[in-house]
């Protein structure tokens, strides 16, 4: 299944893309999706390790399964305020 993952801040800048499209097997977990991203973008491995994934605008557990059609985003450590 194809998913699109939004990127922000340093991740977006280092990857050079605001949105990344991935082709994932059904049943892929959030942790596996991050692993796929780290393989494709080795330069952001360290940032990804500390990045949370938002699934439909809520932080998702690593073992959560990525549903088809979900709104996905990588949330590196936040620094608002």
């Amino acid at each position: 299944m194809k998913v699109r993952v939004q990127m922000f801040a340093a991740l977006k800048e280092m990857m050079g893309e605001a949105c990344v499209e991935l082709d994932l097997p059904p049943g892929t977990t959030v942790a596996q999706m991050k692993h796929t991203l780290a393989e494709r973008y080795p330069s952001v491995r360290e940032v990804l390790a500390r990045t949370q994934v938002a699934l439909n605008q809520e932080f998702a557990a690593p073992e959560a399964v990525v549903p088809e059609g979900a709104e996905l985003a990588c949330i590196p450590p936040v620094s608002g305020g």
């Binding site: 922000f8 801040a9 340093a10 800048e13 360290e46 940032v47 500390r50 938002a54 932080f59 985003a73 949330i75 590196p76 450590p77 936040v78 620094s79 608002g80 305020g81």
Partner: peptide
């Protein structure tokens, strides 16, 4: 807010460099 809201700041330093702030990285 500073812990959970997805907002990020970029420091534009006086020396001309800039960097995104990601606590812990």
């Amino acid at each position: 807010l500073k812990e959970v809201v997805p907002i990020w700041k970029k420091e534009n330093w006086a020396d001309g460099t800039s960097e995104w702030v990601h606590p812990g990285i």
